[in-house]
Simulated assay, not measured.
Amino acid sequence: MKYSFNVEDAGQIFVGAFALAVPVSFSEEAWHLGETLPTSNLLMLLSLSILFLSLYTYHSVFQTNVKHRRFVFIFRIVIAYLMTAFVVALVLLCLNKLPFIDSPWTAIKRIIVISMPASMGAIVVDSFDKE
């Protein structure tokens, strides 16, 4: 069973996040949602992202065995989401759709909107190499 987090895991998370961040980041609808989504809906979206990451990690990566590895379990969820957000930010920056200087709140909202599907891609690819 895989309980540690290493460079291979980080690479898998980056690849999985990139695989879903790219097509969604090219969507004008995602950019528009990042501009118009109310904060309450944005928080619900962020919560759903974390919830689904947690459920998938619990059942697939840890196979429900987290009793003695709670810190590693939580760390894996947090790091997967943060790495995903970083990948999404890089893709949006490359597309000139990350207005951190002019409109930082819009930039953050776009990252959160696109990170939802991208984070699922990240954690699914990360789970492929169970030991």
Rank of each mutant, 00 (worst) to 15 (best):
A21W: 11
A21Y: 05
V22Y: 08
V22G: 09
V22N: 01
P23T: 02
V24H: 02
V24L: 03
V24M: 09
V24S: 01
S25N: 06
S25E: 12
F26G: 05
S27Y: 01
E28M: 04
E28A: 01
E29S: 07
E29Q: 12
E29H: 12
A30F: 08
H32V: 10
H32M: 13
H32Y: 13
L33P: 07
L33I: 09
G34T: 02
E35A: 09
E35R: 06
E35T: 10
T36Q: 15
T36L: 04
L37D: 04
L37R: 01
L37P: 00
P38K: 07
P38I: 09
T39E: 07
T39W: 06
S40D: 14
N41Q: 05
M44P: 03
L45H: 01
L46Q: 12
L48R: 13
S49F: 06
S49I: 06
S49P: 10
S49D: 14
S49N: 10
I50M: 10
L51W: 05
L51E: 00
L51Q: 05
F52W: 00
S54F: 00
T57W: 02
T57A: 15
Y58Q: 03
Y58K: 14
Y58T: 11
Y58D: 00
H59R: 06
V61M: 04
V61T: 11
F62D: 02
Q63F: 03
Q63H: 07
N65Q: 08
K67P: 05
H68F: 10
H68A: 11
R69Q: 12
R69I: 09
R70H: 14
F71C: 03
F73D: 12
F75P: 05
F75T: 11
F75W: 14
F75V: 14
I77S: 11
I77R: 01
V78R: 03
A80R: 04
A80Q: 13
Y81G: 12
Y81I: 08
M83W: 04
M83H: 06
T84L: 09
A85K: 09
A85T: 13
A85D: 09
V87T: 15
V88D: 00
V88A: 13
A89M: 10
A89W: 10
A89H: 06
V91Y: 01
L92H: 04
L92S: 09
L95Y: 08
N96A: 14
N96K: 08
N96H: 11
K97Y: 06
K97L: 08
K97G: 03
L98Y: 12
L98R: 03
L98H: 08
P99T: 14
P99L: 13
F100M: 14
D102E: 06
D102Y: 02
D102H: 00
S103Y: 14
P104L: 03
W105P: 00
A107H: 01
A107K: 00
